[in-house]
Computed example of a mutant assay.
Amino acid sequence: MPEKRNTPHELRVYKIVILGDGGVGKSAVTLQFVSHSFTDYHDPTIEDSYQQQAVIDGDAALLDILDTAGQVEFTAMRDQYMRCGEGFIICYSVTDRHSFQEASEYRKLIQRVRLSEDIPLVLIANKIDLVLARKVTTEEGKNLANQFGCPFFETSACERHCIDEPFYTLVREIRRKEAQGSGTSSEKLHSRRRSRWWRIRSIFALVFRRRRNLN
């Protein structure tokens, strides 16, 4: 008899949103995590949602990742996916000080939408392979992460340096939060958010499909 394999529907799905300015490498980091491939050009007409199975601390997981590529048509949906996401990765580039400063604005957006909730968050500084172009120090990144109260990683999508760790750590943060809370009301809230999440992903896919057809 063939060995039974878990399907995505049997796995715990972790809804992850990756935020950051355009050009910081959000999509490159995500693609390296999902497909172990790198491209220095990301076509914005490609659907920006990805899934990856992983075994983290012995437990299987399906990471459902929404890359919010900064598309104008999604600005109105921002509050929706921020309400539905279970964990967030804020990404900036060490070669772009403005993207570093904007990281705090993304954190404020999450806080505004989720109010009093303790939201699992990871801060990553990408493009550390571009040593000569660096404008943001490691110490500055660590200090910002301390202000956010979250883990911090420096990454290179080009060299696949420290790519898996931020995603695995975020799943651990989500699990830690779940372990702290329980009850029927919590389950109902998760159920509503799961439903909204899949609707948002469907809208993303539809818009990107229309953009590809127009091009």
Results as ranks from 00 to 15, higher is better:
112 R>S: 06
184 T>W: 14
195 S>V: 07
13 V>R: 04
54 A>W: 01
214 L>F: 14
60 A>T: 09
94 V>N: 09
33 F>T: 06
104 S>V: 13
89 I>C: 10
65 I>N: 07
214 L>Y: 09
175 R>W: 08
165 E>W: 09
146 N>K: 15
5 R>N: 15
172 R>A: 03
157 A>G: 11
43 D>L: 00
140 E>H: 03
130 L>M: 15
191 S>E: 14
17 V>P: 04
143 N>S: 11
182 S>F: 07
145 A>R: 01
42 H>G: 01
156 S>T: 11
7 T>M: 14
84 C>N: 05
140 E>V: 05
189 L>D: 14
78 R>V: 01
90 I>R: 04
186 S>Q: 14
63 L>V: 03
122 V>T: 04
20 G>H: 07
162 C>H: 13
63 L>P: 05
1 M>C: 11
193 R>K: 11
20 G>R: 02
127 K>V: 01
7 T>E: 15
109 L>T: 08
172 R>L: 12
183 G>A: 13
142 K>I: 11
95 T>M: 09
187 E>Q: 13
57 D>T: 09
100 F>V: 13
108 K>L: 12
202 S>C: 10
87 G>A: 14
8 P>N: 09
169 T>D: 02
101 Q>A: 14
157 A>N: 04
111 Q>D: 07
212 R>E: 00
65 I>M: 00
196 R>I: 03
12 R>F: 03
21 D>P: 03
96 D>T: 05
29 V>Q: 13
144 L>P: 08
16 I>D: 02
186 S>I: 15
